[in-house]
């Protein structure tokens, strides 16, 4: 029986050009059997949500190292809700101070992976929360 592959959009919101982490996570997810789409740099929240909806993804991973996460992450979630796409799980990573994480989770970010997190942890998290095989 073939299971439906989990589809993930890895996105770089805002103006930040640090994409090492985003690319590493994207490749690790692909190697773990996910279908991965990478947006490239400098995406507005509107562009990310449009891509997430049209690509029918299960999850969106937002990567940001510029410090603009407190605005950009919640904005993506807000726009997903406007599109009735709240089913899409949003997770994040990058240089995110510990003290900002509760606020981001409150806004609807499912998990935040900070520097040093093994990619296997992200893989396990998505497998557990994206209902793979449904």
């Amino acid at each position: 029986m073939s299971e439906k592959k989990i589809r993930v959009l890895i996105a770089k919101p805002g103006l930040d050009g640090h994409d090492r982490g985003a690319k590493v996570v994207a490749r690790a997810l692909r190697d773990a059997g996910f279908e991965v789409i990478y947006t490239g740099l400098r995406q507005t929240p509107e562009q990310i949500v449009e891509a997430a909806v049209s690509e029918d993804v299960d999850a969106v991973g937002l990567s940001l190292l510029s410090g603009a996460h407190n605005y950009l992450f919640p904005r993506v979630i807000e726009l997903l809700r406007e599109q009735d796409a709240n089913g899409i799980l949003v997770f994040g990573g990058g240089v995110i101070p510990e003290e900002d994480i509760p606020g981001l989770k409150q806004a609807g970010v499912a998990e935040v992976f900070t520097p040093g997190t093994p990619t296997s942890e992200t893989v396990d998290f998505l497998r557990a929360h994206c209902g793979g095989g449904e």
Partner: peptide
């Protein structure tokens, strides 16, 4: 386009 990024990095 600058929203959220002004004065950050």
């Amino acid at each position: 386009m600058a929203h959220g990024e002004v004065g950050k990095v």
